[in-house]
Design a protein around this nucleic acid. Structure first.
Lengths: 133, 133
DNA sequence: AATCAATGTCATAAAATATAACATTAGCTA
DNA sequence: TAGCTAATGTTATATTTTATGACATTGATT
C-alpha cells in the first residue's frame, strides 16, 4: 500500500490537465496556491506540476467554497487537520496506537466532573486523565 | 475495481512527464506510436496525452527491446495478445467462463488422434505425445 | 457608497511540443 | 567489405501551453 501512496503524491500533471480534472480555471488554481492551500512542485522549466493528491485537495476546496466557506476558513480546517495529524504521529512515536488513544479519551470522559470510580480495584491504573489542552 | 481501470486509461500526462517516467526520449516515444505500438490521445492543441496504461506499455516495449526483440516482433506479441483477448471476450459472451474453456481444451486434447478412451487401465492417461505444433 | 475576497481578462515572455528533414549507429546480408 | 535497414539522434520552425503581473469585474458585507 506504500507504493500507491507514492503514486498519488507524484507530481506529474500539468496545470492544463488539472483544469480539466477539477473544472477550475488556471487563475483559481494559482490563487489557491498563493493562499497556501496547495503547493505544486515546479519542474526544471518552472512549470507547476500536480499530483493526484493535489487534485483531491482542489476538489475539496471547491466543495468547501460551494458550501459557503471562505478561503481563510478552509485554511483553518487544514490547519486543524495537520495538527491532529501531528499529534497522531507523536502518539505513535510514544508507542501508543490509535485504539490506545481512544481508550484514554474514553477514560477521560468517564472521570469528567471529578467523580470517583465506583470500586477501587481496576480503575485508571496509569493515571490517564489529568490532561491540560 | 472499474473506477481504477478508468483512472489508468485516462489520458492526462504530457510527453515530458512520460519521458521522465519511462526514461525514453520524445523521439523514441513518437517512433513507437508511429509503429502503432501505442496510441496517445491528442488534446485540443494537438498535444499528445498519455495514460498510465500507456506508461506500462512503454516500459514493456523497453523491456522487450532490451531483450533483443525488435519492433515487429513486439507488434506480433501484442497482436497475439489481443487475439487471445478477443477470443476470451467472445467465449464470455457465449456464457463460458475461463475454467469452462480450460476444461474444453483438455477434452480436445484427450481425443486427439481419434483415440477411443483406453480400456486398458493406466496407460498414458492423457495421451501426451502426438502433438503437432 | 466603500471595501474586500474571489475571479476574470489581457499582455508579454519563456517553456514545451509537433513536425519534418537529415544524420548517425549498429547489426545484418549479399 | 560494402550496402542496407531499424532505431535513434539532431536541428530548425511553427504552434501551444504556461508563468507572471497588472488591471478589471463581481458580489457580499459593512
Amino acid at each position: 500500500m506504500r507504493e500507491k501512496e507514492l503514486r498519488r503524491s507524484m507530481s506529474v500533471l500539468p496545470i492544463g490537465t488539472v483544469m480539466k480534472l477539477t473544472d477550475l480555471t488556471a487563475r483559481q488554481i494559482r490563487y489557491y496556491e498563493q493562499q497556501d492551500l496547495i503547493k505544486p512542485v515546479r519542474n526544471e522549466g518552472n512549470r507547476r506540476m500536480y499530483s493526484l493528491n493535489d487534485i483531491d485537495r482542489l476538489l475539496e476546496i471547491k466543495d468547501y467554497l460551494d458550501d459557503g466557506l471562505n478561503i481563510s476558513g478552509i485554511k483553518e480546517v487544514y490547519k486543524k487537520q495537520s495538527q491532529l495529524e501531528d499529534e497522531r504521529k507523536k502518539n505513535l512515536k510514544k508507542g501508543l496506537t490509535d485504539s490506545d488513544v481512544r481508550r484514554i479519551l474514553q477514560d477521560e470522559f468517564l472521570n469528567i466532573g471529578g467523580l470517583k470510580p465506583p470500586s477501587s480495584t481496576f480503575d485508571n491504573p496509569n493515571n490517564f486523565n489529568k490532561f491540560n489542552h
